[in-house]
Design a protein around this nucleic acid. Structure first.
Lengths: 302, 302
DNA sequence: GGTCGAGCATAAGCTGAGCTTACGCTTGAG
DNA sequence: CTCAAGCGTAAGCTCAGCTTATGCTCGACC
């Protein structure tokens, strides 16, 4: 019988790429992970890993087993959710992860509602980049987390997670109030201005670069900033222009002008596959969706 | 994370009824099982068992978890089957369980075909009562097993197993050749004769009693015998009458007359849920179905 | 009603699986 | 070329999983 902990390690190796990263995620040593995966190979009766330089990669059999491991872990998550539903499912920790703008705008009302309706829940919020949400959910350090992507830069769904749409936002070009241009709904109007974009490697950075390139220019990047409050302050100070999603653009500082673009940012709430029926997960989804609906108006939240 | 071995123990407790029986099935002591199930309760965070006299029964939460445990174990079985399919799936042990008549009539040709087509398989046949097949499959002591029931005494499917029909047989009333009666196709013609039925508790015994009672008489049981070769020999010796399925009635000894009844026996080949795609399981199903078809003619095997 | 064995739970003891530490090899980034 | 990243193997340590020991309750049977 294939061991669950070993299946999890193999699954995580597929996501994280190295035994050392898996070890870190589990607070184990690399040696422990190496030995457990070797034991899994013996259980399976075939090689699941192959040496590739100083790393390991999965054999086709290993990749197949990862897929099946997800099914097993999903079934197990369902078992846990079902138990919680018949027990005292609305008590104990509920760990929510969200990006900074959402923590500031959506979560306060949701937390108030959850605390009022389910006083037994121990609510914990972690502010983190959406890129980190899948790993934290997978390692069970979060129960739900907010993800987003853009229609111009879609992010592939993670097989270990399910997600539910909570928000679709218009992306704006934020310009200093002193900037006057023909409002044509394209970033091309700012092609010769300095830009404020996200840290390289973040989705916000990728999107800004991709949108400008689609408008046939390379942006002159003056500043990098990830928090939109900061971004808008820099815009107001005349430091440049930036792409700003609607949630962050609500109630902008004076000195900023917003021009809507034909670009959408889509926010989802994600949770481990199989955990949708967990009462606490269901309650947090409901509360956050309600909060998003109220925050932006009914038209934006499906 | 719920532990798989503990989930199996809980699942088996649901089937076997006592901790002692589960311990025996796993070659553990009752104390080990008791302690592991207590640990599972702590993992689950709620009672799964309740004391009931000197036994334990499952709480509603325990029963729910058993259901989910089956799903998890099925997913795991699928993982194993998928691995076998990409590896050398047609080598190693293939353990087949069947009732005596099937071992004598169906299995020889199937074994010959399997041995010829897949010489790497290590074929092992165990003769056992169909009532024992589910437990043996569940505990992984068999890979496939033959089950049967009768249309007048259907057996409920086991949630841990899948099955495939291989045979439908007519049941005959076997009488001594010296017995002359109006062939009306009912056991009522033998209501005042002595009967040879199966051991009490077996399905054959249940069926004989039920069929006679439906014909408004209680059979005068003279002999109990489970093997149909023995039953037919007793009938030939004038010791009484018996119900005999087609498979066993093929080529009866001289001195026996067979009258077809409107009763069917249905034989299936069973395997653990999720293991249908295991190459060895699939090969054995195919070989045994082919053998059954050949043995009784195409009309009897669907 | 009494007896005795079935069935279970708890505590203590033993063993080996799962992890860490130590070490050494290969690779690849700079 | 150097050095750190990454991994695998061996030895050592710890504790989870099992057995043994014990005792309690129940229920079958006389």
């Amino acid at each position: 019988m294939l061991d669950l902990r070993r299946l999890r390690l193999l699954r995580d190796l597929a996501h994280l790429g190295t035994i050392a990263a898996v070890a870190q995620a589990h607070t184990y040593t690399p040696s422990a992970v190496s030995q457990q995966l070797s034991a899994l190979e013996r259980e399976a009766g075939m090689p699941l890993l192959q040496r590739s330089g100083r790393r390991v990669t999965l054999t086709p059999a290993g990749e197949l087993l990862v897929h099946h491991a997800e099914q097993v872990l999903t079934a197990l998550e369902r078992a846990g959710a079902a138990l919680a539903a018949v027990g005292t499912g609305l008590t104990g920790p509920l760990r929510i992860g969200a990006f900074p703008t959402a923590v500031r705008t959506l979560l306060p009302a949701a937390l108030v509602a959850l605390g009022r309706d389910h006083p037994g829940l121990e609510l914990m919020v972690t502010e983190l980049d959406p890129a980190a949400v899948p790993g934290e959910l997978r390692e069970r350090r979060l129960d739900v987390g907010l993800l987003h992507d853009y229609d111009v830069a879609p992010v592939e769904p993670d097989p270990a997670l399910d997600a539910m749409s909570i928000l679709e936002e218009t992306v704006y070009l934020a310009t200093p109030a002193s900037f006057t241009a023909n409002p044509i709904g394209s970033v091309a109007v700012a092609s010769d201005l300095p830009w404020i974009v996200g840290t390289p490697g973040t989705l916000c950075h990728t999107v800004a670069m991709r949108v400008c390139r689609a408008a046939a220019f390379t942006p002159r990047v003056r500043h990098h900033a990830d928090d939109f409050t900061t971004v808008l302050a820099l815009v107001a100070a005349g430091q440049g222009v930036a792409l700003v999603p609607q949630l962050a653009a609500t109630g902008p500082p004076s000195g900023v002008r917003l021009m809507p673009l034909a670009i959408q940012r889509r926010t989802r709430i994600a949770y481990r596959q199989g955990s949708a029926t967990h009462p606490a997960v269901a309650a947090s989804i409901s509360a956050i969706r309600t909060s998003a609906k109220a925050y932006l108006g009914a038209a934006s939240a499906y």
